[in-house]
Simulated scan of single mutants.
Amino acid sequence: ASADGVIIATPEYDHTIPAPLASALEWIAYTSRALINKPTMIVGCSLGALGTSRAQAHLRQILDAPELKARVMPGSEFFLGHSEQVLDDDFNLNDFEKVAELEEHFSEFQDFVTITNQIVKQADTDRKKAFAWEVGE
């Protein structure tokens, strides 16, 4: 809840996010609501050629739900396909072009966090954190 921003890394299972990630997001949506207005970045890797393009698209939809309302970084997607070919035995990324791309995305995310945290008002976050049935209480 106190993080300035959140990075979610997801694999892709059957063209969507894995069930444990969905469950964690559902838990957040109906308990702490810690992702409301939180700058969020999505990355992912998979064994397939397309990386996690479908899972990331689905995750963007989920994060935009009224109960989550994360501020997902627009215009930036990091897909790592054929992960078994670009990760070494210690799971380090050994494709220097992909490392540079990922570092660029992280740098852009730091700027996105700074800008988002400057323009988002705490009152808006507090208002969105209240469920409709709690507003009258």
Rank of each mutant, 00 (worst) to 15 (best):
A24L: 14
F91C: 11
Q110T: 10
E67F: 04
V72E: 02
S76W: 09
S83C: 15
A123D: 03
P18Q: 02
N37G: 08
P20G: 04
H58V: 01
T52F: 10
A34K: 09
T31Q: 09
A29Q: 14
Q110V: 10
K129H: 01
T125D: 09
Q61F: 07
K121D: 06
P66F: 03
E26N: 12
C45R: 00
S2A: 15
Q110R: 09
D4W: 07
A65T: 03
R33N: 06
R71H: 06
L50R: 04
R54D: 01
E12G: 00
I115V: 13
S76Q: 15
G136K: 13
F109T: 05
A132I: 11
D88F: 08
L59P: 01
Q61M: 04
L102Y: 13
E103K: 13
H105E: 13
D95T: 06
A3F: 13
I119G: 02
E104A: 15
N37A: 11
D64P: 03
N94G: 15
S32T: 08
S32W: 02
D64E: 10
E101Y: 11
I36G: 06
G5Y: 15
P11W: 00
S53D: 10
T31E: 13
V120R: 08
A130W: 05
A57R: 05
S2I: 12
S32F: 04
I115Q: 10
I36S: 07
T31W: 04
D95Q: 14
S2E: 14
L87S: 03
V43M: 11
K69N: 08
G5S: 09
